[in-house]
Amino acid sequence: MYLPDFDYHSPESIDEALSLLANLGSGAKVLAGGTDLLHKMKQGDLAPKALVSLKGLDKLKGINYVEGRGVVIGALSTQNDILYSEVLAKKYPSVSHAAKKMASNQIRHLGTVGGNIVNAVPSADLPPILIALGASITLVSTSGKREMALEEFFVEPASSVINEGEILTEIVIPDGDLTGSSYHKFGLRRSGALAVVGVAASARVAGGVIEEARIVCASSAPKVIRTPKAEAFLAGKSPAPEVLEELQAIVESEVRPRDSIRGSAEYRRNLAGVLAKRALVDAVESGHGLPAED
């Protein structure tokens, strides 16, 4: 299977990459892991005139804890870098767990966290848990740099607020007082399957009472979404059975799933409610650790 023709550029610095993108304009695409981009090009959905490879930009790699900032994840970190990161294993195993649920080992060695975000598909596995943890991102271009909350990045399927000529450089999970988080994904297989629905939860719990919670749903709307009504409802509650039943109903009222080959809208609506309960219970009971089922 042949890819369409294109010119290839491999800049050695971020500045060089940004000026290349600025000069090449709309015909150029950024190449990170390539697992989505090359797939689209092979399928004939995209035929960029040029690819600007980020592979030489070592500054965009690595996962580190930086005092005063939090966990800083370089956008070129692969999904397996996330899965095997000692920093994340210590601070947020829930994020590593979400990476483990993705694709296959071979794809996880190529695909990057930046690519998973910039592709902006509603079924992406890393954005829900990152949004639940309040992550922010940094976008740079020749005209400067901007930071924003990850949850403000997505617009609709395959669409985000990123501008032509911009590169996502890093993701930061800020230090905070959240006491737990988890991600629950349901796919049609254990491996190599996109989420039928994925739900991440985070919580700040004190004395058995939820002071603050986030519920973030993938494959449940045209983009990864938070569920503000459910989050407001949970404040001040403990995860008693009747609270969880009501949580499910509220989440089901807030998601906007569609029918697709992976599941009907009705099925997905129900699944989002069920997974929200499970994710919340794990976030409350297991801290940032791995869910009991795994």
Binding site: Y8, L31, G34, T35, L38, N80, N105, Q106, I107, H109
Partner: peptide, 15 residues
């Protein structure tokens, strides 16, 4: 590639 399994159909030779 450097000891890690990858799908060589999804890697540009230049990469």
């Amino acid at each position: 590639m450097d000891g890690k399994p990858v799908n060589s159909c999804m890697v540009l030779a230049l990469e």
